[in-house]
Design a protein around this nucleic acid. Structure first.
Lengths: 134, 134
DNA sequence: TTGCTATTGCGAGCCCTTCGCAATAGGGTG
DNA sequence: CACCCTATTGCGAAGGGCTCGCAATAGCAA
């Protein structure tokens, strides 16, 4: 909460509840799921505004795993880069260091600084890849 | 059109116009942009249904470049894997072979078959990466 | 305690996409 | 060529995800 105040934000009850929900979660959650965990003691508009504010302070991140809603988690929740199967929608999370080699290659070849914490590495998981072979 | 009929689809005028628009385009277009090029001689619902049907036949593909609408292009339009700057939204298209090294690495390490034709490689373009450094 | 203003809850609205449905038009059959 | 079956169309409504406008409320500094 100290970080919130230092960021110039008031510590309101909607905000506190949201932060508690985010800090108790062990995986990224959608705005709707977060609202449920608040037991209706806020609303979707406020949840989105607060998520945006907290993200600006760097306290949380959000990721887009495929077509569904964005998923939010505290920034300190690791691992936090994602591989997504764009066939079945499942994903795995890995430590960013696991993808350093990819980042290095992309940087050398294209001067891009690849990050897979907001949009994941997309592809086929082992199961779906095997089914494609047939 | 032969491919359409062989795929079990009727060659209707809405379909023919859509295909012509897709084949004339030199870059992926959104459903809305495609409808514009049809001069109102169809509607968004039909455009989406036809895009889906054509994609099932493997004649076209669609890609999600960031948060906007999905973008559709004929499957034969190359190059067709994408690097997206998730800061400024610009992207570049590269030949899939350019990313073989990434694919190999991901396959060895995670048994995933990476594909960047539907969801791109995300990161920071050179310009945005430079600005971040400051 | 007061007063300023950030924040809330609410509803309306936006964007992208899908669905239901009655009317239409491909295209195989005779 | 006329017929019929049904795939497809155009339309409007609706759904999911998110943003905005606004009056009422509640932090919090003085």
């Amino acid at each position: 909460m100290a970080a919130v105040r230092e960021g110039g934000l008031r510590v309101t009850s909607a905000r506190r509840l949201l932060i508690e929900a985010l800090w108790e979660a062990d995986q990224p959650l959608s705005a709707e799921e977060l609202l449920e965990r608040l037991g209706g003691r806020s609303d979707l508009g406020s949840v989105y505004r607060n998520l945006e504010a907290l993200e600006r302070l760097g306290l949380i991140r959000h990721v887009h795993l495929g077509h569904g809603p964005g998923l939010y988690a505290r920034a300190s929740l690791g691992p936090r880069e994602y591989l997504l199967c764009d066939s079945c929608g499942t994903h795995i999370a890995v430590d960013p260091s696991e993808l350093d080699e990819v980042r290095d290659f992309i940087r050398r070849r294209f001067s891009y600084e690849a990050r897979f914490s907001h949009f994941p590495v997309a592809g086929l998981c082992p199961k779906c890849a095997k089914e494609r072979e047939k």
